[in-house]
Structures are given as structure tokens and as C-alpha cells.
Nucleic acid binder design. Structure first.
Lengths: 201, 201
DNA sequence: GTAATTTATGTCAGTGAGTGACAGATGACA
DNA sequence: TGTCATCTGTCACTCACTGACATAAATTAC
């Protein structure tokens, strides 16, 4: 990887860090792009060359996580049913979050705090997810063998479970990757008890 | 109801109609608030006294529907489990949509077309729903007798089913209230087959 | 090592959403 | 009719976001 590429990665991470810190210190709405750009010594125009919008920089890590999730899902064995495959992929994704270097995990936790304090971001996460909806749907339909309304139901149900796992925390609750993983397992357990065996076949 | 109130209702509906027509004719992004305001002979500032944002005017009818849904839900008998109560309330809400006067149903269909062609609006609908999430959650917890993670699961599952019912249509499919009602019933049937009896108790 | 070629960045000018403040117009009501 | 509350238009402003162009820096070719 050349110098140019390394510089870009560095700038990208610097922008994310500056944004997360400013969002935390003075609030999301009160933070301007100019402030973020200024604290990285970069022009505002450059900010928009890295992130399409102010929301995008806040959701940069969730977006990365989604990519990891999609990659993990592709690696799941054919024998697993759609819901099981997605559940396992999600577990592995959260596991990977917990095993990153210090700085990366710091960003993860800061992002979690930000999303917890601004429920409006949930819509943004939905937007992210829906951008990959077609890919997910194709994967589900492939594993099920048919492409019908039932596939949509499986997808919607999984996103619902994922949402519950990520949302709804106590104000002072620790929200690192491990805590999230535990919460996801709890939610998956409830789902398992509620659904009839083979419902996603 | 006085003249002032009637005028306001009239302006509100005129803004919605103008917006929906402009969105349809030239696209959502390409339509400006100034254009909407101009076609109703109202200042742009006044537009924002009726709607908080450009998105809000597009989602005006879904927002109204949500209010109706919440009212219907309150009227459901105590004997119904949370999921059944929400399902019935949703059926009644869609039924009410189909029995409105011509102009209102026209707006309903136009809004549906708009949302179908701009998947980005799904996030907006989520935002709407989440604004009432606390009320819904309270209702579910009340009917279940406890307030725990399971209540969140019931809520998420219902919103998932509702989403599947409203989303995913063929490009040329008719999307009036009756068609939506049928689609919702289909989806509810799938949910019923997939869930163990008493899962939402 | 230098020259030619990409590619990233800064500057500038502009659009459009959204907001606060104030003054004037218009129903509501005694 | 006159007073009061409320709605509206105008103005000025902030901020997110974008296209165009010139410059600077990294990559590649020679």
C-alpha cells in the first residue's frame, strides 16, 4: 500500500475521531462540518470527499461492520438455514469488533454512545441496512431455494432481532462489543423460543 | 370549527397535494420548497409552519395513519395478546384508509407510489414509528404484564411484519388501501405459521 | 533523477433546507 | 367596533452539500 493510500486512511480515521469527539462534547446538531474539518486541518470540501454527509461520518463504523457481516455471511456453510447463518455471521462480526486494536474499539464505543443518545440515528442505520437489502435477500432466497414473500419475512425478522439486540440500553450501561454480543445472544434466545423449528426453511 | 381552523386545514391539504404532485412529476429531490409554496400561493416560511421538513410533507399521510393506528390499538379489548391487538388495529387502520373520501384516498395512493419509487423514505417511516415507540412499548408491556426484553422483541417483530406488508411490490402493482390490506394479511399468515402459540404472552 | 501523468486537495461560488425576529394582516370575541 | 390572539410575509441568517477549476503532491515512465 502506497503513501497516498496510507495518508487517506489516516485522514479518514482522523475525521471520524474528530467528529465523534465533537459530537460527544457539544452534541451532533451543534457540531458543524467546518468544525470537524478544522480540527483535522482539512478543508470542508475535503470532508465531503471522504463522507457523503454529516450522518455518514457518524455511521462510518456501523457501515464497516455491515461490510464485515456480509463477508461473514458469505462464508457460512450451505447447511445452515438463512436465520442461523445470519445469526452466526452477526456473532462473528461482533466478535471481530471486540478483538480490534485499542483505537478502533474506542471508536466503536464512542459510536455506540452517540447512537444511544440520539435515537434519530436508528433511521440512519436502517438506511444503511436497506442499501444491502438486495444482497441479503438474494442470500436468503438462495439458501431457501425460493424467492417469495417468506424470504422478505425472514429478512425483516432478522433485522428486527438485530435492532433489539443493539438498541434499548440503560443510560449508564457499558456498551462495548462484548456487552452487545451478550445482548444479541439474549435476544436470539427469545427468538428461538418464539419460532417454530424450521420456520425459515 | 371556526373559519380560521378550516382555512388551516385547507392550506395543509393544498400543500400536501401540491407536494405529492410535484414529487411525482419531477421527482422528490428536484422539487424545492419554494415550488411547493408557490403553487399554493403561500410563502416558503409558511410551509415550514405546517411541516417541519420536506420529508414531513411526504410522510404526512403515514403520520396520520399512525395516529389512527394508535387510537385503534387503545380500543382493542384487554383479552387480546399484544401481537393480536396490534394486528387487528392495523387491519382496522387500513380499512379506514379504504373508506375515506375520494380526495383522501387519492393522496393515499399518491403517497404509496412516492414511497415505492424512493426506498430512502423507508428510513423516514422508521423515524415516524420510533417517535411512537415508547407508547407502543408501554401498551405491549401493559398487556403482557411485564416490561422486559421480550416486550421489545414483540414490538420489533410487529414492525417487521408491518414493513414487509407495506414494502416490496411489483413495479406496476396496484397499491390502494385494499391491496395493502391483502398483503398485510398474507404477511400476518406467514408470521402466524412461524410463531409458536402464546409467544407474545 | 527528471518529466509526464494521475489523483487528492483548496478555493470559490452557488443552491436549497431550515430558523429566528419582527411587522402587518386576519379571524376570534367582547 | 375595537381589542386581542393568531396567522402570515419579509428579511436576514446559518449550515449542509455540490460543481468547477486551479494547484499541489504522489505515482509512474523514461
Amino acid at each position: 500500500m502506497g503513501l497516498r493510500e496510507r495518508k487517506k486512511q489516516k485522514t479518514r480515521l482522523a475525521l471520524i475521531d474528530a467528529a465523534l469527539d465533537l459530537f460527544h462534547d457539544q452534541g451532533y446538531e451543534a457540531t458543524t462540518i467546518d468544525q470537524i474539518a478544522a480540527s483535522v486541518d482539512v478543508s470542508p470540501r475535503t470532508f465531503f470527499r471522504y463522507f457523503g454527509s454529516k450522518e455518514d461520518v457518524a455511521l462510518a463504523l456501523p457501515a464497516d461492520s455491515l461490510d464485515i457481516f456480509l463477508a461473514e455471511l458469505s462464508d457460512r456453510p450451505e447447511s445452515e438455514s438463512p436465520f442461523v447463518a445470519m445469526s452466526q455471521a452477526m456473532r462473528l462480526t461482533l466478535g471481530a469488533m471486540g478483538q480490534r486494536d485499542e483505537a478502533d474499539h474506542e471508536r466503536f464505543v464512542k459510536t455506540r454512545k452517540l447512537l444511544d443518545n440520539n435515537p434519530a440515528f436508528m433511521a440512519g442505520q436502517m438506511r444503511l441496512l436497506m442499501a444491502s437489502e438486495q444482497r441479503l435477500l438474494a442470500e436468503i432466497s438462495r439458501r431457501r431455494g425460493t424467492d417469495d414473500l417468506h424470504s422478505h419475512f425472514v429478512l425483516a425478522l432478522f433485522t428486527a432481532v438485530a435492532r433489539v439486540g443493539f438498541e434499548y440500553c440503560q443510560p449508564d450501561e457499558v456498551r462495548d462489543a462484548d456487552a452487545l454480543a451478550r445482548r444479541l445472544d439474549e435476544t436470539l434466545a427469545i427468538a428461538e423460543q418464539s419460532l417454530v423449528p424450521g420456520w425459515d426453511k
